[in-house]
Every structure is written in C-alpha cells, then in structure tokens.
Design a protein around this nucleic acid. Structure first.
Length: 648
DNA sequence: GTTTACGTTGCCAGT
DNA sequence: TACTGGCAACGTAAA
C-alpha cells in the first residue's frame, strides 16, 4: 500500500503547538506533507481587511514558515495565490495527493467554502480530515448540548461545557515534519475578478497579489504589503506564534495578575501597557491556541494561594465568552451577522440600516442613508471627530493601532447605537471589521449585538457616558491627550468636555473648540464642538429603545421581513419609520432581480455615488428630505464567481 | 403559574 | 476610597 501524500491546509490556525488537525496529519505518517496557505479572493477583495490586520496575518505566516523550516529545512509554509475552490483540484492532481487535512472553521462563509472544497476532494478521491481546534469546545457540539439552541448566555455555555467534559490539554508542537514532495505547479493560474475591491481605498499602489501562483520570486513566500499595494502598517501589534507564546509566558509569570484578573476592573484608559492581555488577535489567527491559553492560566489559578477570580470576569471567563459567540454563530449561520432573518436579534428601526437583498435576504456593506444627519454623525464617529474626546481618542486609537480595550469598544458602540446616534449596529460592526487586528466575525458581531441591546443583553437603560465613564480610571485624561494631542494642555476639569472651557482659556491652551472638524486656525489648533447634547440624545435613544422593546419584533418576524413593522412605529420616532408601507428597513425594492448574482449578493449596477431610493416618506413629519441608498462597490462572493465559472 | 434573583463591565448622590 | 441605594426597569432562569 502506498503511503499517504498529504496537504495540510493552514487557515486560522497559524501555529505548530496544540493543533489537533496537524497532529492528525502527522499521525498518518505521510510520505510527504505539503504545508500550504491558499490565497482567497474573498479575503483579499470581498471582506473588509485593513492594512494592520494584513500585517498581522503576514507576520503569522512568516513566523510559522520559519518555524516549519527550523524543524525541517526542506519545508516551509507554501503560500499559493489562488482560491481554494479552483486551486485544490489542480493541486490534488499535480502532487498526487491522497489526504487533505485542516482545522474546522464554523464561520458562515468558511463553512460554505469548506463544503465546496470537501466536495472537490471527494470528486478527486482525496480523503479529508477535519479537526476542531479553534475554540475551547467544538461550537457545533456546544449547540448539541443546549438542546440545539444558540448559546445566548454564559450560563448556557458553562452548562453545555460541563456535559461535554474537560477541555483538552494542549498538544505539544511536533519535533519533526515530513518533507513536502515535488512542488511543480505547471498549471494555469485562475485570476479572480478584482472588482469590486472593498479594500481599494486602502491601496496606494495597484494590487499585484495574483501575478503568479508562487509569488514574485516563485518561492511560495508570504506576500508583502507592497505586493498588495498597501502602505506600511501603523499598528504596534505584531503577529506570529513566537511572539504570542512569549506574551503568554510573560502574562502567566505574573501569578497575581493571572489569577485575580477581573475584566470589569481593568482600565480602558490604560495604554503602554494596556490593562488586558492583547492576545485576542493571536487567538483569531491561531498563532496562540485558546486551549494553551486556558490551561496555562488555569494551572496558575489552581496553584494560587489567595482568592482567585472566577468566570465570567476572570481570564478564562473571557475565553468562555468567545465560545458563546462561536456557538451562537454556528447555530444561526449567515443570519447571525445581521438583523434581518436573525431569530435571536431584536429588531430596532436604527438609522442607516443595511441594504438587504430581496432574493437572498442577505445584508451586505451597502446601507441606506435615511437621514443625512445620521450619516454625518456616523462619519464623525468613525474618524474620531465627534467632539467628545473620550470617543474620539478611542476611534483614533482603533484606526491607528487596530486594537482598543474591551470597555473602550463598549463606550464607542453604545455611543453609536442605543446611547447617542441611534445608528444601526451593523455600521459599527463594519468599521470594527475593517480596523481591528483581532477581528473575528463571531465575537465582533456578538459584541455589537450585546452593546446595542439587540441580543445577549437587554438593560438598555444602563448607558455609558462619554464624560463620566473614563473619569473613573483616568481623571487627568492621559489617554485622551495621547490620541487627541490637540487637547494636551487642557486641565482635568475640561478634558472630557472641552467645549465648556472659556474661550480665553482655550486660547491659552492653544486649541479652539469650534466647528465640526479638526484642524488649525492661525496659531491655534482646532478641536470640534460636540455633535449633539449628550443627555438629550441619551434620553431620545432610551425612549426609542423602550418603544422598540415594547413592539418586540425580532429579525425573522414577518412584519420585519415584509416592511409592515412601520405601522407599529410613530413617524416622529427615531429611525427610518416614516410612511406605512415599504419593504424591510433598507431593502430597496427598485433593484431588479438581475442585479443580484445567484447568491443574492448585490452586483454593482450603480452609476454614481448615490441613487434615489424609493422610500421617501410621504407626509412623514420627521426631517428626512432625501432617502438615498449609499451604494458602495458591490460584493459578489467568490462562491458565486466560482460556481458560475464551473457552470460555463 | 407566579415570584424572585440575577445578569462580566452605568450614573449619581450620599455615606 | 469603597460601598450603598435610587434611578427605571430589560429578559431569563431558578425557586
């Protein structure tokens, strides 16, 4: 019998330690093992991946590749620039592959992708081995133990986890790896459509990542940011298994910190160093195993003499929340990441709702500008010029560094949604998707639902103040001064509400508080006035939330899907409620069916930046003169493209 | 069926 | 500094 020839397909498991899937590959004792990473047009063009997250990914790939080479000088991580759905059949043949091994990924997109890859492998007679390793528990197994309900609370996770049994101890990194076989790739490279490119705005040069299968030097090396057309990263947070394990060791060497960690007591205003571990991006890319993290912490806790903290506030508790969100996502699938069609997400008539395809009922990155005021607030929030220093400092830190403290995320998310702007949480989630180095859909979407009180959490009357909240941990506003340096001379009294400072003082401190943007005026710097009166907006939002809660709709309710939810809200309520008829939130019913591909994703047919929507209020007394669907470049999925190619 | 306690991380005034 | 109760009041799970 011939020995197995195996491909190990790395994805969000960029590590050698504690990889159940890699162990399964090695247990085959294959004649050759090809460690590969497949480039994915979905990741390159259709997902919002900012430069800093790209850098983190490339760090992880580079480190993993050199770690592989240290174990076997003949091997490394082979990065191949083609979509897995078209590449694998060619690779199976060229390398005479018998086995394909990878770690399970329950993200909605990943499930679709992996399903088609498994099908391709079956057609090629290739055996597929899939092992769970991304979370503490297999999300599907977790859901099996909740009576097939999505995990919506930590107690459900703990109860289900108990039934599953003890979390497995980590598996050591392998000491040897088989050689890869012949690396010939004498087949044509399939080029994906590069339009639309959701990351085009970040590129300063043209994208060259699909010039050749094995890269510009034909050596299968990870690309550089230059190759992708991106400018250098601005984040100080760097990836790689080596860095991740060093960080973990440094954290667990402080026994008291590790054993007594309580998340709510950590300071969101702390920087250099941050008050929390900043290991989240490593968990996302798999450069750190979550079970390695769990057991290294648990072992410290078990030996700790004093009173250790416990879930959910403890360090291990944080990992349980991650599993909770993965469990919810595993059960709800694509619907998890949006309101429409989501049985567990409360329907709130937010401003700037997502455009939903009437065929697939999927929400994409397009959204409806139901209210120009809300759009202006959204842009000011996104780019850190709301006039509230705490909010602006956080948003600037996020954009520059790709990471902010968990409670900082709470502050900006509450502010954008139920505690200020009354803007759809999906808008905020998209910004986080683009800028966070630790972005993973399950946690990001779950936390946005939490903070917007649409799922997981419902105490909407508990609202973060952009003035009072940061004062608790940073009376002097050191954090604000770090990210909003124009306010560096403002005293404690005015640092969180600089608009209250007398003009003479503003001049003395070198910064005028006026207008709606940042900049300079003669010898003075300029920081904007607050974009609204916070106490007033907090009250407006609270009343609107109260109303939406009493209406009590969820994303999959018929009134939500057919647009008759409008009849249940007053025209002068917050949100796009005017008029009694019309489709769901931002579903634009004047888009022809042929504008959507066979997956229901919207295909770009726009002829300009904005187009007139059809839902302009008739007789609505709220100030919303123009309804325009904000159409970005569309988002066909790779799946659609690939399947169509196959059909032809 | 009803009541009660609780829920990772609010704010404010008062002790 | 660290705690308390009032604020207005949500959903869920246990009792």
């Amino acid at each position: 019998m011939t020995k197995p020839r195996a491909i190990y397909w790395f994805r969000t498991d960029l590590r050698l330690h504690d990889s159940p899937a890699l162990k399964a590959a090695l247990d085959l004792k294959p004649e050759c093992l090809y460690p590969i990473w497949t480039w994915d047009p979905h990741y390159v063009y259709r997902a919002k991946v900012g430069v800093n997250r790209w850098q983190f990914l490339l760090d992880c790939q580079t480190d993993l590749s050199s770690s592989i080479t240290k174990i076997n000088p003949k091997s490394k991580l082979h990065v191949i620039r083609e979509a897995p759905q078209t590449l694998f059949p060619k690779l199976f043949k060229a390398w005479r592959i018998s086995h394909l091994i990878f770690e399970k990924d329950t993200d909605a997109y990943a499930r679709d992708r992996d399903e088609s890859v498994v099908e391709l492998a079956r057609n090629a007679g290739v055996q597929v081995i899939i092992k769970t390793g991304r979370t503490l528990y297999d999300p599907d197994e977790l859901v099996e133990h909740t009576g097939r309900k999505p995990t919506m609370s930590i107690s459900q996770v703990q109860a289900a986890g108990k039934k599953i049994g003890e979390i497995p101890r980590p598996i050591p990194a392998p000491k040897s790896l088989p050689d890869p076989g012949d690396m010939s790739i004498d087949f044509e490279q399939e080029h994906p459509p590069t339009d639309p490119d959701l990351n085009a705005h970040d590129r300063t040069e043209s994208d060259k990542s699909y010039k050749s299968l094995a890269g510009p030097n034909s050596d299968f090396a990870p690309p550089t940011l230059e190759e992708l057309g991106f400018p250098p990263a601005t984040s100080p947070h760097r990836g790689g298994e080596t860095v991740a394990l060093e960080m973990l060791s440094s954290i667990t060497s402080d026994k008291t910190y590790t054993a007594t960690f309580e998340k709510p007591k950590t300071a969101p205003t702390a920087f250099e160093p941050a008050a929390t571990t900043v290991l989240s991006p490593h968990l996302h890319f798999g450069s750190l195993s979550v079970r390695e993290f769990f057991w290294r912490v648990q072992d410290v806790v078990d030996k700790y003499k004093g009173k250790a903290s416990e879930p959910p506030t403890s360090l291990t508790g944080q990992l349980l929340f991650r599993d909770m969100y993965f469990g919810a996502q595993a059960h709800l699938g694509h619907a998890f990441a949006q309101t429409i069609g989501n049985s567990h997400c409360r329907f709130i008539p937010w401003h700037l709702p997502s455009v939903v395809s009437p065929t697939s009922m999927r929400a994409g990155h397009d959204y409806q500008i139901d209210d120009p005021q809300a759009e202006e607030w959204f842009q000011r929030w996104k780019f850190g010029r709301t006039g509230f220093p705490w909010i602006d400092a956080l948003m600037r830190q996020l954009r520059q560094e790709g990471w902010i403290h968990h409670l900082g995320r709470h502050a900006v998310a509450c502010f954008l949604t139920r505690g200020g702007c009354y803007i759809d949480w999906e808008r905020g989630a998209e910004v986080f998707e683009e800028w966070l180095v630790d972005h993973e859909t399950a946690c990001n979407v779950g936390n946005w639902q939490w903070l917007s009180c649409t799922a997981f959490y419902s105490q909407f009357y508990r609202c973060y103040s952009p003035i009072a909240f940061p004062k608790k941990t940073d009376k002097e506003g050191q954090f604000v001064k770090r990210y909003c340096p124009e306010l560096e001379n403002f005293p404690d009294k005015y640092i969180y509400e600089p608009w209250r400072a007398p003009i003479a003082d503003q001049k003395a401190w070198g910064c005028l508080i006026k207008g709606d943007t940042c900049g300079e005026d003669g010898e003075y710097k300029v920081y904007p006035k607050p974009m609204f009166d916070f106490p007033t907006r907090r009250e407006v939002c609270k009343q609107a939330m109260k109303k939406a809660y009493s209406v009590g709709l969820h994303g999959n309710d018929q009134q939500v899907l057919d647009g008759t939810w409008r009849k249940l809200f007053d025209d002068d309520a917050e949100g796009p409620t005017d008029g009694k008829d019309g489709p769901v939130g931002a579903m634009i019913d004047d888009v022809a069916e042929e504008d959507y591909d066979d997956h229901g994703e919207m295909v770009d047919t726009s002829h300009g930046e904005e187009s007139e929507g059809k839902q302009a209020g008739q007789g609505g007394n709220r100030a919303s003169p123009k309804k325009a669907a904000h159409k970005r470049k569309a988002q066909g999925t790779l799946d659609g493209v690939v399947k169509r190619t196959k059909k032809n």
